[in-house]
Design a protein around this nucleic acid. Sequence first.
DNA 1: CTAGTTTGTAACCAATTAGTTATTTATTGC
DNA 2: GCAATAAATAACTAATTGGTTACAAACTAG
Lengths: 225, 225
Amino acid sequence: MEKAQAGARGRNANGERAERSAQRDPERTRASILAAATKEFAENGMGGARVDAIAERAGINKRMLYHYFGDKEQLYLAVLEEAYIGIRTAEKSINLSDLEPEEGIAELAMFTWRYFLEHPEFLSLLGTENLHRARWLRQSTRLKELHSQLMGKLSELLDRGRAKGIFREDVDPLHLYLTMAALGYFYLSNQYTLSTIFGRDLAERASLEGWERHIVHVTLASIRR
Amino acid sequence: MEKAQAGARGRNANGERAERSAQRDPERTRASILAAATKEFAENGMGGARVDAIAERAGINKRMLYHYFGDKEQLYLAVLEEAYIGIRTAEKSINLSDLEPEEGIAELAMFTWRYFLEHPEFLSLLGTENLHRARWLRQSTRLKELHSQLMGKLSELLDRGRAKGIFREDVDPLHLYLTMAALGYFYLSNQYTLSTIFGRDLAERASLEGWERHIVHVTLASIRR
DNA sequence: CTAGTTTGTAACCAATTAGTTATTTATTGC
DNA sequence: GCAATAAATAACTAATTGGTTACAAACTAG
């Protein structure tokens, strides 16, 4: 091509950013690298992911990937951090304090299940990261505070249920969260081997709906007095 | 080295195999390749595992690996099949028919948990295989019959408990197995990220024992009338 | 004892891979 | 308008990787 078109460039009358030039757009480039990397790492793991494949999926030159993220490992960590921020941010938006304790627990259990169902790449990334014993996650500083909020919410629901006399005295909020998460995570992340060896398609709509009800049932049964 | 020592070779007086030559021993070579491959695939996944690393771990020449197993993918499938045979074989040895229904379920839940705890490589292999949507497991023919036995055992326990009036009417044996497996699998396979984000070491002895009790409690609570 | 087969080794190869260099083009602060 | 800087491309490289070739030693059947 020759010179740039005068069309979509610079700032508009209000001094705000106009729509970016088709030729240069750092934010969009960065975002598309991150999105492409999320897919590639989720599908192939850290060891199986290919930097060239990420560049191609993102429609950018490989050099840009190193420009924005340093190297493959830092890119992977950025992907992982963004994935955690995604679920914890979505969690924030559910309001549990208006609900009865049992309803609140059920709501959180269903939220977790549905989030896992709609974000298979999150599950894959967790699997990959654990394969490597949290080697990269442990380097991340800015994640821990995200999780104390979740524990706080659960503790509050448990306290209210205990005061009402409907929940057991000795429920550990971490155990409760792990129970809900385990039931959703295992079913979805292992659906391929499970469907194969048990000869039942776990991805069918009816099976998925049945498992959601099962999760709520098991979770509540485990904490009721 | 020069000529072979006459020492440990050929057959003994009874015509049986004597202890193998130090120089040639196909069975031992094959077994050590399989053991080394199990470790390498479990630690690094299919994409991250290195054929050279397997050969080195096994203390054999890489050529032998191709001689016995064809290529990397067939070796991986052999590792996976052996891992499944391992757990299903161990399961066979527990006798549930002498136990009361509740005890039987508890026994199976504890067995599953302990097997997972003692065979982390099995969990890793499942994770890797599911990352690839059971691509290799689906090619395996000889695995399905292994699993119908397990379902049979569970159905029998559930029937007896239902007849006794202590279990609910509508329990799906597959759901029951998935519940026990999910609680063990998730805790162990995700222990590294979970310990990191929640700031609690899930591998501590007391935590592990607490989780075993939790699994039994949740499993039984979910099926009791 | 010997020819054929199996088990084993060492060195090699073509393809792939993470990361770089050299260079050009667009954008921005002054 | 213009120098400085940021964004982008294409081509390259050194190391690694899965798989192979050529060859040698050990075992077995007749």
